[in-house]
Nucleic acid binder design. Structure first.
Lengths: 335, 335
DNA sequence: TTTCGCGAAGTAAACGGTTTCTTTTTAACT
DNA sequence: AGTTAAAAAGAAACCGTTTACTTCGCGAAA
C-alpha cells in the first residue's frame, strides 16, 4: 500500500538519493528529465514521506507543543485557534495540551513534550503556577531546555515572551469609568499572584491616582477568573458604595449577572459594568457589555512568529501588544 | 546533552538490545542485576527515548489526529477538552486540527495526518462536506485508510461512529413546547444537508405528528449554526404565527436575542424559546434558557474508547448517546 | 567426559529517510 | 583525439530504536 522512496527509486531506475533530492526540491544537480519523471511516479502512486523517518534523520519534528490551562475557556480556545492556524500555515503541527490549570500536571506535560521531541513550546502558563510565587515560576521556566515562548504571562526573566498590555487594559477600563463620573469603582481581579491579576490592578490604581482619586482597598476584590468567582464577589460588593465595577474577566462578570438574575434584579440597573476579554457573548446582552478587547488572534500569531525566530536565533524577544476598549452600553454616566 | 541507548549501553557495558529490553520492561531474560543497574544509569542521566526513532521502528506514533470544524466554537472546544484529556490518560498525544468548516481543507489535513503517521483519527466532519451530499461524504470517508471514528455526524456506512441522538433531541424539545400548549412551533435547523440538521428536524416532525399537530413547512427555517443565522431568521419568523421557537443551536438563538435587543424588545417576552447544546451561558440569561443538553464529555470519551478498540480489532462500532433536556425558564405555558 | 537444555546476553538487520562523499557521464575546449 | 571541468547520479553511512536470530556458558543428564 504505502510505498517508500526505495520503491520509487526502483521504478524510476535511479538511486534513493536522487529521489530524495528531487522530492525535496533541492537545488542541486539532477536533470530536468529525471525530475519530472520521478515527480510523476511519486504523484501517481501518491507517495507520502514517512514523517518519523524524516524527523529521525533531520533531528527535528516539525511539531510544536502548545500548553494551555483550559482548552474550553473561550479566551484560550480562540488563542489556540489562532496559534494552530498560524502554525499550520508555516508547516508545523501543533500538539495541544491541557494543563487543567494545575502546575504539577503542566510540568509533567512539558517534560513529555520535550522527550517527545517537539521543536519548541508555546506555553500559556497556569494560574496555579503563578500563584506559587516568582521563585517557583522562575525555576520552572529555567528548567525548560528547548526553545519556547511564554504567552500571556509577564516574566522578569530574559526569555521569549509575548503579552498583552494588562496595565493598559486596567488603566483604560478605569479611565472610562472615571470619565463617566464614577469615583467609587470596584475591581474584581484575579487571585493573588494569578497571571496578569497584579498588572491589571496596577493599571486600575494608576488611573485612579492620575485622576486624583483615592484608592480604597475595600473596593479591591479577588477571585478566580471564572463564573463562580464573580457570583460570590458581587454579593460582597453590594456592601460597598461602589457605583461601577471593573471585572478583570468576562466570565466573572457573567457570574455576577447570574447572581442578580436569581434575585430578580438586573445587574446593569445598579452598576456601570466593564469586563475583560470581549467575549462574543457581550454583544448579545442587554445592554451590550463594554469590555477590554485583547487581540487574541494577534497574540497567537505573534507568539508563533517569536517562537519561529527563536528556533533559529539566540536572542530573546519580548513583545507587548496593545489592548483596546470595546465600548458598548454597560457603562452609563453617573448623574 | 541528550543521550542515547547506545551510550547507556556503553556505560553499563552491555548491548543496546539489553538496554532496550530493560527500559521497556520486557519480560524476557536479563538478570535482575543488570536490570537495576541499567535503570539506575538511565534515571541518573534522565534518559528519554527519541520518539521519532521509536515510531519508525515500531511503525506507530502514539498520536491521534483530531479534526474539528472550529476549535473556538464552545461545543467543539468542550469536545476537544474531553477528547484530549481522555487520550492523554491513555498515553496518546493529540494532534488537533481545525478544518475551518471547509471540506477542501479538511481533506488536505486528513491526508497530512495520515502521512504524518498518526495511529488513528477522530473526525468531526465539516458541515461543508455534509452539505455536498451523501455521495461526496461516502467517497471521502471511504478514502481514509487508517483507523478512524466519525464523531457527531451520522453515516449509513459501516464505519466506527459515535453520535448523539439528534432525533431524540429534536423530539424532546418539540414535545416540551407542545406540553406547554404551543401548536405553532417554528424550528430553525441547520442548512440543507448540514450535520445533524435533518435528524433534528425529523425529531421535531415526529413529535408534532405524534401529537396530532400539522406540520407547517412555513415554520421550518434553515441557517448556518451561528449567530448570524439566528439573527436573520428571527426576522422572518416574525411574519409567522409562531408562538415558540426551537433553535437547533444555541448560537443561532443568541443571534435572535441580539436582533430583538437591537430594537429594544425582549425575545423571551414574545416567544417560548428552546435551544440546543446547553452552552454554559444559558444559565446567565434572564430568563435562563432551556436547551437540549448533550453530554459532550461522554461523547469525547466514547469516541476515544471506540477508536482505541478499533486500533486492535476489525469490527466496527456504532454508538448513539442519549440526550436530555435541561429545562429552565425560557419556555412558558401558553395561556 | 560428552551432550543437551536453558538462561543470559549479543549481533545485526530492519524502519524510511537525509546527506556527505565518490564515481560516472557529458560536453566544452585545445 | 585528448584533457578537463562541470553536471548527473550513485554508494554508503547515519539518525535511535526494535526485534529476529545467534552465541555463549554452565549445570544436569547420559
Amino acid at each position: 500500500m504505502k510505498l517508500t522512496m526505495r520503491e520509487i527509486a526502483k521504478m524510476a531506475g535511479v538511486s534513493v538519493t536522487t529521489v530524495s533530492l528531487v522530492l525535496n526540491d533541492k537545488e542541486a544537480r539532477i536533470s530536468q528529465k529525471q525530475r519530472t519523471k520521478i515527480k510523476e511516479i511519486a504523484r501517481k502512486n501518491n507517495y507520502v514521506p514517512n514523517s518519523s523517518a524524516v524527523s529521525l534523520a533531520k533531528n527535528e519534528s516539525n511539531t510544536i507543543g502548545v500548553v494551555v490551562p483550559n482548552i474550553s475557556n473561550p479566551f484560550y480556545s480562540s488563542l489556540i485557534k489562532a496559534i494552530s492556524n498560524e502554525l499550520s500555515k508555516r508547516g508545523y503541527y501543533s500538539l495541544i495540551i491541557n494543563s487543567n490549570d494545575n502546575h504539577e500536571n503542566e510540568a509533567k506535560q512539558v517534560a513529555k513534550l520535550v522527550s517527545r521531541g517537539v521543536d519548541g513550546i508555546l506555553l500559556v502558563p497556569s494560574n496555579d503556577l503563578y500563584a506559587q510565587g516568582t521563585d517557583k515560576v522562575n525555576t520552572f521556566l529555567n528548567s525548560i531546555d528547548i526553545p519556547f515562548v511564554l504567552v500571556n504571562a509577564d516574566s522578569d526573566l530574559d526569555i521569549n515572551q509575548v503579552n498583552l498590555d494588562s496595565f493598559e487594559g486596567g488603566y483604560l477600563a478605569t479611565q472610562l469609568l472615571i470619565d463617566n463620573g464614577h469615583t467609587d469603582i470596584a475591581i474584581v481581579t484575579g487571585n493573588k499572584g494569578f497571571v496578569n491579576a497584579e498588572t491589571r490592578l496596577l493599571g486600575y490604581q494608576k488611573a485612579l491616582a492620575d485622576n486624583g482619586l483615592t484608592i480604597d482597598p475595600n473596593l479591591v476584590f479577588r477571585a478566580p477568573y471564572d463564573l463562580n468567582g464573580g457570583y460570590e464577589r458581587i454579593q460582597q460588593i453590594q456592601q460597598t458604595p461602589a457605583t461601577a465595577i471593573f471585572f478583570c474577566s468576562d466570565l466573572m462578570l457573567y457570574g455576577a449577572v447570574k447572581q442578580f438574575n436569581e434575585s430578580k434584579r438586573n445587574l446593569f440597573d445598579h452598576y456601570s459594568i466593564i469586563g475583560y476579554d470581549d467575549t462574543f457573548i457581550n454583544e448579545i446582552f442587554n445592554p451590550t457589555i463594554t469590555s477590554v478587547k485583547q487581540n487574541v488572534s494577534q497574540l497567537g500569531s505573534e507568539a508563533v512568529r517569536v517562537l519561529y525566530t527563536a528556533l533559529s536565533s539566540k536572542l530573546t524577544i519580548n513583545v507587548k501588544l496593545d489592548v483596546t476598549l470595546n465600548v458598548r452600553d454597560s457603562v452609563k454616566a453617573l448623574d
